[in-house]
Structures are given as C-alpha cells and as structure tokens.
Design a protein around this nucleic acid. Structure first.
Lengths: 316, 316
DNA sequence: ATTTGACCTGATCATATGATCGCGTGTAGA
DNA sequence: TCTACACGCGATCATATGATCAGGTCAAAT
C-alpha cells in the first residue's frame, strides 16, 4: 500500500525514545539533541518523524473540546450513543487515515491494560491498528478479528509491533459456498475466536457505503453488477460485510450466508462497538447504522457529522 | 513564582484544541491552520505554545525505553520498587520542572477516572500538579494534601483548571507549639482529610535534602543554625517535612511534633507512594529514602540515579 | 569479481517557526 | 479628561526544521 516500514531495532527505539523526550518534554532543539547524543541533526529529525508516523510518539489533547463539541453532543443525544468523537475538517490528506488516527486515540484513552480489542475490516480500521501497535504492546492489549479475511492486512501491513497476542480468524471473509461458510463457523477454532471477539472489551468496525466504487466492490466481495439490484432492494451500507437498509436493518441476502464472521445481530447484542468512518459518500450508510443502533460509539469528521444530522428520521 | 497565567476562556480553549488537532494530528502548518480558522499565523503559534505549557497538549512516548531502561530496572531490583522512571539528562533547564513533568506523565498514565491523588509539598510536586490540571479535570481526579501548608501553593499557582474537588488541610505545615499541632490533627475536619489522603489512589511527595540552602530552610521551617546539629545527629533528608537518617529511619526530633500532616510511618503503611526528586545534592536523601522503603515508585533523572546506585549499602 | 539496487548518510536550500519589537486599544487612577 | 500602564496583536527577522539531492556502503544476484 504505502510502504511505511517501521520495525526499527530495539537499539534505535531506545535512541528514538530519548530524542523524543528531549525534544518534546525538554524543548531542546534537534541540534542540541544531536550534539548530546552524538548523532547528526538530520538523524534526530528522521527519528522523530519515524516516531510520529509509527505512533510511538503520540500527541494528546486534554480538553473536552478535543473535537467539535456541539456536534458530538447532538449526535450522542439524537442517536443514543454511548460516546462520540467528531474531528475537525482539514483540507488535505486522506480522510480514512485521519479518522483511523482518531479511533486509535480514542482507544488509547480507553483500553485498559491486558484488555482485548476486536476489529473488523477496512482501510480506516487498518490505520487505527497501525497507530495502536506500540501502545498495545506496551499495555499487553490483545487483538482478535471479528471476521475472516483479516490475515492479509495483518501480514501485509507494518504490524511488526504488537508482536504476539493476535488472533485472526483463519478463513476468507467471503467464500463461494454457503455450506462452507456454515461449516467454517462451526469449526471449534473459528467459533472460539468469534466468541472471543464478541466478548472483547471494544469492537472496532468500519462502515462501508454501497456504490460501484465502494470497498466491498473494489475488494471483489461483490461484483459491480450486483450493486444496483441490491440498492434497489434498499441496501445503503455495510458493516462487517453485512448489508443493511436505511433503517439499519440487516437485509436478508444470499451473500450474507457466504460471509465468515459475526453478524450484526450478535454484534448489536454487545456493548462498546465503535464505528469509525467518514466522507460525504458514507453519510447515508452512517446515518442508517446509527438509526439501526448498530454502534455505541461513533468516530467521524465534521462534514460527515453535519450530513448525518441533516438526514430526516429518528426525531419523527 | 513565574507568573504563567493560563485560565484561558472556554472559547479560546475550543480554538486551541482545534489548532492542536490540525497541527499535531493532521500535520498542517501554522499558516494553513490560520487560514482555515481565520486567525493570524502568529496567533496559532501562541495558542499552541500556551497549550504546551499549560499541559493541555501532552506528548506521550509509547515505548518501554521511555526513560533509561537499565537504570530503571537496576533501581527497581535493588530497592524493591514497584515502579521507576528515570528521565534522560538534559543540559539546560530547571530539573525540578522536568522531573515534575515526568511525574505528571506517570500519573496521567496511571490515574483512573474519578480517583484521588494525595500530594505533599515542594517545587517538584507543584510543577506536577500544574501539568496535571487539565487531564485531572477531564477525568474527575480529586486532590488532597498530605500536610498543612499547601494552601499557599494552590492559591498562588495557576491552578484555575482542576477547579473543584480539591481538599487542602487547613493549617500551616509547621506550627510553633507542639500542643497546637496535636490539637489540629485531632480536629475532625483535619483528621478526616489526613485519612482521605492516606487512602488516596496515589501519593506524590518530593524529597528534600538537608543543607543550608535546602527548601526546608528557604521556606523558614528550619532556621539556618539548626541544620548543622541535625546533620550531626544523622539527618540526611526530609519527606513531608519529616527528617530521616541514612537508613531512611525517621529521627526523633522536637520539630516533628510541630508538623501538621501525616508521618512517614503512616505513609509507609500504604501503597503507591511516588517520590519525585533529582539533583546531585539530593542523591543522598533519595538513597536513604529508598533504603528506608519510604517509596514505592521513584521518579528521578539519569545522573541522580547513577549517584544513588553508587552509594554503598543495601546489597550488604 | 562485478554489477545492481536498496538503504543509510550528510549537504544544501526552501520553508516553518518563534523571539523581539513597536503599535493600538482598553482600563484604571489622578 | 487626561495620563499611564498593561495587554493583545501583527510585522520583522533570526533560527530551526524538513525536503531534496548526491555520494557511500552493504548485500544479493549474476
């Protein structure tokens, strides 16, 4: 994807930590730090940058105004959310990455030591996991997948941190034969993991929209031709590859019988389900997920939040 | 002391939080942020600076190498500490402030929501409290003093954050008449606070050395002439205005009967006692406090840590 | 042994940042 | 009403920082 390669050696990590301390806590310049540690200024600069992108250095804002307070409050009240984060708009950059980062920050502030985090699927979630790596390792936080098909992410991505304590459901996300899916989910090793995931301390999921450019299509779980008929049947979005309508009700589809992973009824029966998503295209899917009470906690951006609130419904 | 005046309005805090997010999380330049929020670049710069000094913006290093790992381990093992933080040396700046900051960071990572923090006395502790203000308010952390004489700090200092939930023992630290001290400590309102303090989730204390330039002298709790005789009796340091010898045993002194506050026997009977102190002059006092098992958790700096470890004893 | 290429390093330069200064405004006191 | 002072603001400039480029090293492949 983007070839960020962390996995810096133990030695470099110590050096980096020291640079970070001197720079951020003591306010020394990079020159001064270089002189003290006998490395060049430029190397200090690079170490710090690496620290920032890898999540080893984390900036935290201790304020209830962290995001956009009024929007957060409104969403919380309107949809009965347990919590909500709305990040301010920024002109540039990848929105998924920014929201992933916000989700990571949220989790960092809420994950207790030795707790367990269940994750779904998608770009936003992947970004979160990457950012969380270091702190998760430090606190002994475990990771478990809510669906199949996560393996590729874990392997491909720079997840060298977080080393052990990862439990991935050993199956694809969607299989061709419904019977195979059923059989897989009955398989004890898979069933046990799904159970673990449902009992995790937090569950982090992305929210997908339903269009011809959507991720479900790009990843090949749905063919381009299938989209339009599904939309006509009322599908507006997906969570964990389960499609739902405007009211957030899961549709009864053949596709769902081929998915390996927890379904939305199971997920909705638990607490601490975090949905992280943003973007104009996704606002309908997010609104529907909220109306269907699929989430306890929403993390999104300013523009999307406004779009969701503009939608009719709920307050009937 | 240094006239930092935070207490920025609610409006500015929202603006600051937004700047901080855009700057640190999204990597925008101050110019871009200014353009987006319709404020001048320089104002963004100033808001961010204010955020940093007030502790509203906090940089966290997610690494076990955060400080100086080997020193931390050695100290922990040698003195049976529950935990230990050793910050790297930096050429400039006020050491008390730096250690106070480290203590604040430690607490930030360990204080649960709605917990209670008991504090002693001294410059280091005061710095910590200031840095902690915002996060404490956010998490509903309460504050209680372990001794009298803290009121002046709380009032004088920029503690406008942390607004309520502060409990200060309403008495001076040292009174002239031993009987008055006894009477005060029997007074229910005082006794209750001392009890609260001893049952707090963490207790943060400074460590003082015993010399003619020491804080106890500068603050007038001990006259300059009294120092030398006390040193001859074996006094090497103080915690909460209680003097102790090289082995960390509290001395039997008239002074102690005039102090209003918990004594070291009571303190040592509890857990989660954090000692924060550093500096060449203090190394003896710190070593003695460790040998006397006065602390569970030590926060100090590299040089001081080495000096403490060079001292004989313990491994006898 | 040679080549190739990935990777790390430091030099140079454009840019971002923060220190210092002087201006205008609001305020308290005469 | 006037003066004096403190405060907030933006302009200017020195400095700190990070982007880009070019050389150097190591390792794998030929």
């Amino acid at each position: 994807m983007d070839g960020t390669n962390d996995a810096l050696g133990d030695l470099d990590e110590a050096l980096l930590a020291r640079c970070a301390w001197l720079y951020y806590n003591d306010g020394l310049t990079q020159n001064e730090i270089g002189a003290q540690l006998n490395i060049s200024r430029i190397k200090v600069s690079r170490l710090l940058e690496q620290g920032r992108i890898s999540g080893l250095i984390q900036v935290r804002i201790n304020s209830r105004h962290q995001g956009c307070l009024e929007l957060e409050e409104t969403l919380r009240a309107r949809f009965g959310l347990g919590d909500c984060r709305v990040i301010p708009d920024a002109p540039a950059d990848d929105l998924n990455e920014r929201i992933g980062q916000a989700a990571a920050q949220y989790l960092m502030q809420h994950l207790a030591p030795d707790s367990l985090l269940a994750v779904g699927w998608g770009a936003t979630v992947t970004h979160s996991i990457r950012m969380l790596g270091h702190v998760a390792r430090q606190r002994g936080v475990g990771l478990v997948s809510l669906t199949g098909g996560v393996r590729t992410y874990v392997d491909g991505m720079g997840m060298a941190n977080w080393d052990r304590n990862i439990h991935v459901i050993p199956a694809p996300l969607v299989v061709a034969d419904p019977d195979l899916a059923t059989a897989l989910m009955r398989e004890p090793s898979v069933a046990r993991l799904m159970d673990m995931a449902l009992n995790a301390d937090f569950k982090l999921v992305g929210i997908g929209e339903l269009s011809e450019g959507a991720t479900v299509v790009a990843q090949g779980y749905l063919s381009r031709d299938e989209v339009e008929p599904l939309r006509r049947r009322g599908a507006v979005g997906d969570v964990l590859c389960r499609l739902y309508d405007e009211a957030g009700q899961t549709l009864d589809l053949p596709l769902h019988r081929r998915v390996v992973g927890v379904d939305l009824a199971q997920l909705g029966g638990t607490e601490k389900v975090i949905g992280a998503a943003g973007g104009r295209a996704k606002s309908k899917a997010i609104g529907a997920a909220l109306r269907g009470r699929l989430l306890d906690i929403l993390i999104t951006d300013e523009t999307t939040a406004r779009l969701v609130l503009e939608q009719p419904g709920e307050g009937a």
